[in-house]
């Protein structure tokens, strides 16, 4: 932690957060919210939470801002002003926020000081993870080892949350418009319809995309030794396709990743994750006890088997996340019709 930067960034964050809800333009609000996420990412980095920062950079600053743009594109930018309206709602909101603030402030008096090395949070359970990560799992990045092994069960459901969100978006937006019953397997193949010839953007995208995807694969595979992992890599992979769909046309992406492919990929990703867990079950150990995999993975001990299994798990996560990010974006930006994109 670096307290000088901490203080400043927190102050900037408050300004951003306040302005986001005050500003009268939804697109502007989305832009400021994007800036808010940028600052968040800095805050996590400064407190040493590099993996959180990576996720925030990819999920928060990247994808969710683009999702906001997509939604604003499909609805309206304009916030109506009613000087006298909703006094009731405002009172309730103010009262609830004030009450909550007071209660939480009351609680802070008992908190251990910020960044105190002797606080209960840093002394009770976490030392085991810090000292145990190498002997138990041979993975230097302890966030990865806690994420995919010690608390791997949480992560499985976390991936399921993403999949659930994808399915939810499909079932909610699938009702609008006159599109064929789910799942769409083949869209009309046609020329790219939009007439904007953004030569520079398209050229840059064409050059960048392969490198970005390579980088995403690196992030997935190198998550054991540096920040990153399945989520971040998956989101970056998905974001490259979003980039293509923005700079060319939505059709360009949906021709390659139609709804069925996306669903298959996402479900396969989760089946990889839970399948690895179930494999441990079949091999006679508890669910997700990767050490049992040493019996079938050649050249591994019970410890390195954990590391190998984590890689498999991360690949599953990345597949699922990539597919769902593309799915959600495609549906939101086209209002569920896959016709025209941003």
């Amino acid at each position: 932690m670096i307290w000088q930067i901490d203080l400043l960034i927190l102050t900037l964050i408050v300004i951003c957060g306040f302005c986001t809800i005050v500003v009268k333009d939804l697109l502007g609000a989305a832009v400021i919210f994007g800036a808010y996420s940028f600052l968040m990412c800095l805050l996590w980095t400064e407190m040493g939470a590099v993996d959180v920062a990576f996720t925030e950079a990819s999920v928060g600053a990247g994808v969710s801002t683009v999702l906001f743009f997509a939604a604003v594109h499909r609805t309206t930018r304009h916030v109506k002003m009613k000087p006298s309206g909703r006094l009731m709602g405002k009172t309730i909101g103010l009262a609830a926020a004030g009450l909550m603030g007071c209660v939480l402030l009351y609680a802070t008096t008992d908190f251990p000081s910020w960044a105190d090395p002797n606080s209960p949070a840093s002394t009770h359970v976490s030392p085991r993870y810090i000292t145990g990560t190498i002997p138990d799992t041979s993975v230097p990045n302890m966030v990865t080892s806690v994420l995919a092994d010690y608390r791997g069960f949480d992560t499985m459901f976390e991936t399921a949350v993403i999949l659930t969100a994808g399915l939810a978006v499909l079932i909610i937006l699938g009702q609008t418009g006159n599109r064929s019953p789910l799942p769409i397997s083949r869209l009309p193949q046609g020329p790219i319809t939009q007439g904007y010839d953004d030569t520079i953007i398209r050229f840059i995208t064409r050059i960048m995309t392969p490198f970005l995807q390579l980088f995403a694969l690196y992030v997935i595979a190198h998550g054991h030794h540096s920040p990153g992992g399945g989520f971040q890599g998956g989101v970056i992979l998905g974001a490259t396709f979003i980039l293509m769909s923005i700079s060319y046309d939505l059709r360009m992406v949906t021709n390659r990743f139609n709804e069925r492919t996306n669903l298959l990929l996402a479900n396969t990703g989760l089946l990889i994750y839970s399948g690895i867990g179930a494999l441990c079950l079949i091999l006679g150990a508890n669910f997700l006890d990767y050490s049992a995999l040493a019996k079938i993975l050649p050249g591994t001990t019970t410890i390195t088997a954990r590391s190998e299994a984590m890689l498999g798990v991360e690949i599953g996560v990345a597949l699922a996340v990539m597919a769902i990010v593309i799915l959600i974006y495609n549906n939101l930006v086209s209002n569920g019709t896959y016709e025209n994109g941003l």
Partner: peptide, 20 residues
């Protein structure tokens, strides 16, 4: 205990794939 949760969980994805 784990089967209670895992059986419907795995089936959900299996079902989703079959549904395609």
């Amino acid at each position: 205990p784990i089967l209670i949760v895992i059986v419907p969980f795995l089936s959900a994805f299996f079902l989703s794939i079959t549904g395609c």
